[in-house]
Amino acid sequence: MELFVQSVISGVLLGGLYAAIGVGLSLVFGIMGLTNIAHGSFMILGSFFVMVFSRQLAGSIVLALAVTLAVMAAVGALTQGALINRVLDKGAEPALLVTFGIAIVVQNILQLIFGADFKSISSPFASVNVVSTKWVVISGEYLVNFLISAALIFILHFIIRKTWLGRSIRAASGNVTAAELMGVNTKRTYIYAMCLALVSGSVGGMLVGQTFGFYSYSGMSYLIIAFGVVVIGGMGSIVGTLIGGVILGVAQLLGAYFFGPGMQIFIGYLTLLVILTLKPRGLLSSMVRK
């Protein structure tokens, strides 16, 4: 029983982190209908940046993250402006393949520079337990992950709902021509959206780097988690990713609880497939779009 409660609590906390991984993917899909295969690789690129910068900046993780976010925003602007914007109106496959190509390039550049070794980013909360009773243990690191992720989701939600940038993004996602008629340069809006996606992905990348570690090719395995989160939460729904993440996290850890740790990932996938079969457009698709 204790272990069951523990699994659920850890699952919820893990789910927060998953949401941070998935939210950028959801955003980009919701806005420009793009399935960004490179999302996971960009996330890991963020992990590497945080790692490198924190070494350079006397171990300050906050400063390192700040620099990383700026750099990743630039990477996003470049990717969208120079590559993806050119193929978006040519159909789904070309855009998807471009992101595929980008993913491969990013992974292999990382491989070239950093090799295939497993890396990690040190966390000040790594060995702190916030709650430690006979019943449950809540690790400081998991809790901080969850809080940062939740904050990230709500900031993004606020930007999309309440700001001029957010409104222009929603306008462009709903009706490109009408948005242009309002004076919104939709191509530029897509650039901003990609920047937001990579910035949020990098936050996820940092948390993943602290909690699980990473290497140059980790992107693809996190991409599928991101897909899972987004599929449950509904493509394009920002708050949905938080719910999707929590469902996936809990499903995985309960899977491990009932069937053994080897089955954690498998049960996660099975849950996704069952949800997709019952609700082919995501669990929350009927409730929200944004």
Binding site: W164, R167, S168, R170, A171, G174, N175, T177, A178, A179, M182, G183, V184, R289, K290
Partner: peptide
């Protein structure tokens, strides 16, 4: 063609985007 999933208020605000 209005922005379907925006409120009336938000639609009007979009008009004043520039």
């Amino acid at each position: 063609s209005v922005f379907e999933d925006m409120s009336v208020h938000e639609n009007l605000l979009m008009g004043a985007y520039l």
